[in-house]
C-alpha cells in the first residue's frame, strides 16, 4: 500500500488535542472546584453540605424518580415501535424510522414551545400538573434516543433465533421472554444510558414550560448563575460519579452478553 503524507500517529494528534482540551481538562476543573472551597483550599465541606441538606438530597431523589419514570415510559413506548420497524415486513421501514427520529431535526426550542402550547390547550394552566408535564416533555424529548439503539440492536438480531425459539416449543410470550428480550439487552442498555442520564439534568425543558419542578440540572444552573462555582461543580462531580457507576455496571452487564453473542 502507498504511504500517505502522515502516519497514523500524526493523524491522531488533532483528536488527542481536542480530547485533552475539551474533555479531560474540564473534568479535572470540575473535580478541582468540587472539592475546594472559595479560597481554593481542599475541602469536603461542600460534599457534606450536599448530603446533609434535605433540600438538595430531595432534589436528587426527585430527579432520580423523574429520570427513572421517563426511562421506563420511553422503553415501553420505544420497544414495540423499534420491534415493528426492525422486524416488520415494510418496504419502507427506514422511512418509517425517519418519521420517529425526525423531531430531532427540528429545533429543540421550537419543539418544546409547540408542546407547551398543546399542553396549555389541554390543561388550561400548566401549573396545575407540574409533575405530569415534566414527564410528558421529557418522554417527548428523549423518545428518539431510545428508539434508535433499540432499532439497531433488533435489526441486527438474526430472525433464525426467533424461529429456533418457536421451533423449540416456545410460545410467542416465552419466545419474547427467553430469546428476544435477552438478546436485545445491549440495545436496551444503550437506550437507557442515552435517556436516563440526560433526563436527570435537562432542566431547560422544565424552565421552558414554566415549571417550578427542581431537578439536579436546575440546581447546578442556579449555583452557577450565582457564581458559586464550587457547589455547582460538586453537584456535577456527583452526577459524574453516578454516571460512571451506572456505566460501569451496565458495561459489565453488556460485556458478558457481547462476549456470549460473538
Amino acid at each position: 500500500m502507498k504511504k500517505g503524507f502522515f502516519d497514523r500517529r500524526q493523524l491522531a494528534l488533532p483528536y488527542v488535542l481536542f480530547l485533552l482540551v475539551f474533555v479531560i481538562l474540564p473534568l479535572f476543573v470540575v473535580v478541582y472546584y468540587g472539592f475546594t472551597d472559595a479560597e481554593g483550599h481542599l475541602s469536603f465541606a461542600n460534599f457534606l453540605a450536599f448530603f446533609t441538606n434535605m433540600r438538595t438530597v430531595g432534589t436528587l431523589v426527585y430527579s432520580l424518580v423523574i429520570a427513572i419514570l421517563t426511562t421506563i415510559i420511553c422503553l415501553l413506548l420505544a420497544y414495540p415501535v423499534a420491534y415493528i420497524l426492525a422486524k416488520g415486513e415494510y418496504a419502507r421501514k427506514h422511512s418509517f424510522l425517519m418519521v420517529f427520529v425526525l423531531p430531532m431535526w427540528i429545533n429543540f426550542t421550537l419543539r418544546i414551545t409547540a408542546l407547551k402550547e398543546i399542553l396549555t390547550l389541554l390543561e388550561g394552566n400548566l401549573a396545575f400538573h407540574p409533575f405530569l408535564n415534566t414527564i410528558i416533555c421529557m418522554v417527548y424529548d428523549f423518545l428518539p434516543f431510545m428508539i434508535m439503539p433499540l432499532f439497531n440492536s433488533l435489526a441486527k438480531l438474526d430472525n433464525s433465533m426467533l424461529e429456533a425459539g418457536a421451533d423449540l416449543y416456545a410460545s410467542p410470550v416465552q419466545n419474547f421472554l427467553h430469546v428476544l428480550l435477552p438478546l436485545s439487552v445491549p440495545g436496551i442498555v444503550s437506550g437507557v444510558t442515552m435517556v436516563f442520564l440526560p433526563a436527570m439534568t435537562n432542566y431547560v425543558v422544565l424552565d421552558m414550560v414554566y415549571n417550578s419542578t427542581y431537578i439536579m440540572g436546575s440546581l447546578i444552573g442556579s449555583y452557577f448563575s450565582s457564581y458559586d462555582w464550587n457547589n455547582g461543580s460538586l453537584i456535577s462531580a456527583i452526577l459524574l460519579m453516578m454516571i460512571g457507576l451506572v456505566t460501569m455496571v451496565t458495561n459489565r452487564l453488556i460485556g458478558d452478553k457481547e462476549v456470549a453473542s460473538r
Binding site: A164, G165, D167, Y169, L183, V185, S261
Partner: peptide, 21 residues
C-alpha cells in the same frame, strides 16, 4: 399450525444457537 405446536425440530443452516445461553 405454528412451529411451537409441531412435534418437529430443526437444525438450522447457521445453527441458530442462542448466544446468551
Amino acid at each position: 399450525l405454528p412451529p411451537n405446536k409441531r412435534p418437529i425440530n430443526t437444525v438450522f443452516q447457521k445453527y441458530a444457537l442462542f448466544p446468551h445461553l
